[in-house]
Write a protein that binds this DNA or RNA. Structure first.
Lengths: 263, 263
DNA sequence: TAGTGGTCTAGACCACTAT
DNA sequence: TAGTGGTCTAGACCACTAA
């Protein structure tokens, strides 16, 4: 069956195994709800519905794609499980956004040993455009020498320097990003990236190590050289598993810890 | 509606809000499929179906609980998402077990920087029964002074000491656990715990810090005192979110890293 | 009151596995 | 061929939200 371009079978015949030719997608063979999920994801990616906005109702989407509401529901179920959309009973389904208290801590795993997390003081040490070194290019799926935005910042909690991190972003996607924009902007960086540059982070992987503070880090953090620090190297992805951020954070874990849930 | 003890409404009336009185459970108000999920979980916990075994089919369970197959399916969907059961098309649904290649690395986040993970050499340094200190008792939900099994072991990869860890287990649950049993047993410890002591770990949380190797750790790991090590403090839970293991691991991250997926 | 997501049912067919 | 989980449909009613 071909959602959005022909009628479904009338006898309840399942559609798995038939290609999706709608919306210009290349033929794929997968369950109908997966095809619908892909079509919805395309609309999210293309900005048909913007972060924070209300999406069409399940009934509307079912009519649009010419499938049953149950099929749309299963597609949206998976998108909700992946945090791409948020369902609200009685209201509708909304495109997920980083502009929510709830979302602020999704990518921040460093927690205070006691008390609740709170926003840190933020000091930008350096913001500049450079050419990608081989390693950076490899992780961001760029070519060596491509333009990247480099950011270095120090975050403090209750006046105590705790997070020293460096970021590399594809220059192509973040053309107008300057130190001023970063300083002006209140709220999480991912909110800025989403609103001002149309790039939403939806997933990330981190490799974590214990390292000794070098002279530079030690000075910024206010600790002796050689102090053990937690080093987290993050690669963040947007729609389509496209890498769009490299981040290397050094965490002082004297009064904080990195929380990992294993399940 | 009361699954397993009365007939469902015949007109498709939803059952949410009515108590589950079956199987002696205290009255709860939740969707039918959540009640069914709770009943199935009870059967898993009580050992009606053992790890690795085939569970009754969805049709059978639907008949047993007097609900539709779709309702049982939704309950099992969630159990599968939580890794309590494993679905295999054409075969049936199986109780999850630690005796699977697939499950070995679910709780092992330390990965080699290059290559694929492989089983480490295992050296048990100490196995003894002690009384729980206040901190251990608190985390394991015991009383200070309660009996606990204490295990200290060193794991090496390719001859290089990499993981030095200590475990504390409730003495009540692990009565026959001795150094001999641990050394004899081939395979992951969680397999031993599951098969020999009837305790399955289903979830865990880890707090991670960077610490400096003390004299003892340095000697075991073959590194200078003060070397930065990753410290992971794990609390593992079995059915009903009951804490049943405390583990404190020191990881040498020279050629390994801790992998964390953020989503 | 109307519209939304959430639950539940019943029945059909598909894909896979084992006999 | 029979049995299992996987997909899809259609329709009903519930719980929640907002006008």
């Amino acid at each position: 069956m071909n959602p959005a371009s022909s009628s479904p079978a009338k006898d309840g015949t399942a559609a798995s195994g038939t290609p999706a030719a709608g919306a210009g997608s290349s033929p794929t063979f997968s369950p109908l709800y997966q095809q619908i999920k892909a079509l919805i994801t395309q609309s999210l990616q293309s900005g048909e519905w913007k972060p924070g906005e209300l999406m069409p109702s399940e009934v509307e989407l079912a009519a649009r794609f010419k499938v049953s509401q149950g099929t749309v529901r299963k597609a949206i179920d998976e998108l909700a499980a992946e945090n791409l959309v948020v369902r609200r009973q009685g209201k509708g389904t909304f495109v997920a956004t980083h502009h929510e208290e709830r979302a602020h801590y999704r990518f921040l795993r460093l927690m205070p040993d006691e008390g609740v997390p709170h926003h840190p003081d933020n000091r930008f040490i350096e913001v500049k455009r450079i050419r990608a070194a081989a390693e950076v290019a490899r992780l961001l799926d760029l070519k060596t020498g491509d333009a990247v935005v480099y950011i270095k910042r120090l975050q403090s909690f209750d006046g105590a320097p705790t997070i020293l991190e460096e970021l590399w972003l594809p220059g192509q996607l973040f053309k107008g990003l300057t130190a001023e924009r970063l300083v002006e902007y209140k709220g999480p960086m991912y909110g800025l990236f989403e609103s001002e540059f149309g790039t939403r982070m939806i997933r990330a992987t981190e490799k974590i190590r214990a390292v000794a503070a070098d002279a530079g880090a030690a000075e910024y953090m206010g600790v002796p050289e050689g102090t053990p620090l937690l080093c987290a190297e993050r690669v963040s992805f947007t729609y389509g598993d496209k890498a769009v951020e490299l981040r290397r954070g050094l965490y002082l874990t004297a009064h904080h810890h990195y929380l990992s849930e294993l399940s």
